[in-house]
Design a binder for these strands. Structure first.
Length: 655
RNA sequence: GCCGACGUAGCUCAGGGGUAGAGCAACUGAUUCGUAAUCAGUAGGUCGCAGGUUCAAAUCCUGCCGUCGGCACCA
């Protein structure tokens, strides 16, 4: 007797082992058709596999949350079959489902061309229509290895050899094609449907190791139906529209050129926004008890040897030789400089915690293939800080820094932020009891704040555990920005000490803090998050005064002057163009507010405000418009401050 | 760094051994107009760089540089 409990709580009893399909049959004919797999006690399995014991069973259909992964995994298999049918000289390796589709890594001398991809995609549709049933077989290990070696699939054979001894070797057959696979799979290739598309080919290393040979990875996307596929492709187009490289050009913010790969040429408008970011961070630092410093851009090689950076990273450092034969390195990090500042004079425990901040411009020779617009550059500005404190102060400092980081992200309109906690890696320095304490400090800091975090086991730096702050942008992409790291290495290597209450010298704890990370990258993230529509306080140009006729030129100049006097960034467009033309042009450049003035406004001392993307306009008295806009243009940290002091404002105004 | 694709006017792109093309932008002129493109004209390019093949190269070949998509890397 096997008792099957269904999701509605009802129980079906069978005389003996029963397949998922039979369970579906016992419920209804429609369900048999819709069934793709079964969930047995929470584990997704093939429909055909037998359930031998009492279990909670759920039929997985196209609508189930588990369906997509099944579809995508099958799509990978169908693609592999199609590819091997068309190109028999291809070996298969791995082909998993991904978040939006699937890929398969192939080994083949000849590179796949975009035309090959079209061929493969056509063949995939054929294979789906062949309605091949997928059958699971369990093979004896050595037999499996021999089989794959015999047919020339050396990667598969190699993979089986590395599987743990007890593991079942399962094979999935579809028609006359088969693949080693853990499963589960759909009952038939037909169940895959046709809502898939091959996207691109690229290189990928065997087992993800750059010292291994390179395979060809073919990426595809797969969905439940055409509608979902279309929606996904549409989303990609939208993401392309908000690409910061494209918007940066259109909005005239910055450019790159060949002579300076990975280094930004900031144009006046881009630099204006960058400066506002910088100003904001300076205010927040001040408020958070940080003191700003500035350490040399270039230091002798010996400094980097002492810090340990030379040994680990000299290949990624820019260096320069001088006439006197010395080698200098352009700083790739600010920390050694900050330790030098800490080390000047004798530090007392009374000075701790000492929070040194620097908007240091660092240069790193990043691998050419890693460069990506503002997101990955070779020269960037870190909002870097190092806190020197006693071991007892670590937890409080971590908490304050975390609170500050979260508050900063809120100011930029990021609603969802995740915190990842990375603990000790295998390769590390420092005694375990020290790690125990530091990890407890980081965790404890978050627990006391009531902030949830995810565990990132073994991903800490070799010199200490860390917190990573990951924000989610408007279209759901995650960006890791802030970090809080404990460092047990540098104070030791660069011999930082302070005199404690007991009169003895002690080693300070050192924290590395970055809130936004790279300001260049953060600016890129903001551009994409806002799709170029920066909030007023960050916008390089805040109000554009556009005239309708030249009669209003004089008044337009008055308006612009008044706006500027109120601290707003304003420009005038007096060109002899139609208002439609001007509105379109400035809208495309993402100017947040257009103040339209014609004869009427000039006569009445008003402006017609038009918001970016808005369909309507609002006619306001000039003074009222200035009042509203300048309120709106206040940075969020200052706005919060002025609200707190609001009761005092009327008195001040009266003076 | 590795694999693949790409590099033509400021931008978006066509052309693929025989005189370098379009639209938009720019410039000039006309138009004074009410909320996302007024009309006409003018000018603009060593076809990424360097070699090679050829009577002839933007076009074919090789190398380099850069960009894009991944992989690897990210102190």
């Amino acid at each position: 007797m096997v008792a099957i409990t269904l999701p509605d709580g009802s129980v079906k009893r069978f005389d003996g082992p029963v397949s998922g399909k039979q369970v579906a049959q016992s419920i209804g004919a429609g369900l048999v058709k819709a069934a793709l797999a079964v969930k047995v006690d929470g584990e997704v399995r093939d429909l055909a596999r037998e359930i031998a014991h009492d279990a909670a069973v759920e039929i997985v259909t196209r609508k189930s949350p588990e369906a997509l992964e099944l579809l995508r995994h099958d799509a990978a298999h169908v693609m592999a079959q199609a590819t091997q049918e068309l190109y028999p000289d291809t070996q298969v390796t791995f082909g998993p489902a991904t978040e939006t589709g699937f890929y398969y890594d192939f080994a083949r001398k000849e590179p796949f061309t975009p035309e090959d991809l079209e061929q493969i995609e056509r063949r995939m549709h054929e294979i789906v229509d062949r309605d091949l049933s997928l059958e699971r077989e369990v093979w004896e290990r050595n037999h499996a290895i021999r089989h794959f070696e015999d047919i020339g699939e050396k990667y598969k054979a190699q993979h089986i050899e590395t599987l743990p001894a007890g593991e079942e070797i399962s094979i999935y057959r579809q028609g006359d094609w088969l693949d080693l696979c853990r499963g589960p799979h759909l009952p038939s290739t037909k169940n895959l449907g046709h809502a898939f598309k091959l996207m691109r080919v690229s290189g990928a290393y065997w087992r993800g190791d750059a010292s291994n040979e390179q395979l060809q990875r073919v990426y595809g996307t797969a969905w439940r139906d055409e509608k979902e596929l279309k929606a996904y492709l549409h989303m990609l187009e939208e993401a392309e529209k908000r690409d910061h490289r494209k918007l940066g050009r259109e909005m005239d913010l910055f450019h790159f050129q060949e002579e300076a790969p990975g280094a930004v040429f900031w144009h006046p408008k881009g630099w204006a926004t960058f400066s506002k970011l910088l100003d904001y961070m300076k205010r927040r630092n001040e408020e958070g008890g940080y003191v700003e410093v500035n350490a040399p851009q270039i230091m002798d090689r010996s400094m980097w040897e002492a810090s340990g950076h030379w040994e680990a990273y000299h290949e990624h450092m820019f260096t320069t030789e001088t006439e006197d034969g010395r080698t200098f390195a352009i700083k790739p990090m600010n920390c050694p400089g900050h330790v030098q500042i800490f080390n000047q004079g004798l530090r007392s425990y009374r000075e701790l915690p000492l929070r040194l901040a620097e908007f240091g411009k660092v240069h790193r020779y990043e691998p050419s293939g890693a460069l990506h617009g503002l997101m990955r550059v070779r020269a960037f500005t870190q909002d870097d800080a190092h806190i020197f404190c006693t071991p007892e102060q670590v937890k409080q400092e971590v908490q304050d820094a975390s609170r500050m980081i979260l508050s900063i992200y809120r100011d930029f309109g990021f609603e969802t932020v995740r915190i990842k906690f990375s603990d000790r890696p295998d390769k590390r320095i420092g005694a375990d009891h020290v790690w125990d304490r530091l990890e407890a400090d980081l965790k404890g800091a978050l627990d006391e704040m009531g902030e949830p975090y995810e565990l990132n086991p073994g991903e800490g730096a070799f010199y200490g555990p860390k917190l990573e702050f990951v924000l989610r942008d408007a279209i759901g992409r995650d960006w890791q920005c802030g970090t809080v790291q404990v460092d047990m290495n540098l104070p030791e290597r660069l011999d930082a000490t302070y005199v404690g209450q007991d009169g003895e010298r002690h080693r300070p704890a050192m924290l590395h803090i970055a809130k936004l990370g790279s300001l260049e990258r953060f600016a890129g993230i903001l551009i994409e998050h806002y799709a170029g529509r920066l909030p007023l306080w960050l916008s390089p140009l805040q109000v554009l005064v556009a005239t309708i006729t030249s009669e209003a030129d004089g008044y337009a100049r008055e308006v612009a002057a008044a706006l500027k006097k109120a601290g707003l960034k304003a420009e005038i467009d007096l060109r002899n163009e139609k208002i439609n033309y001007k509105v379109r042009e400035h809208s495309l450049k993402k100017v947040p507010v257009i103040a339209v003035v014609g004869a009427r406004e000039a006569a009445e001392q008003t402006v017609a405000l038009r918001r970016l993307g808005g369909q309507t306009q609002e006619v306001l008295a000039l003074s009222e418009a200035i009042h509203r806009l300048s309120n709106e243009a206040v940075a969020p940290d200052l706005a919060a401050a002025s609200e707190e002091t609001a009761p005092a404002a009327p008195a001040a105004a009266a003076v």
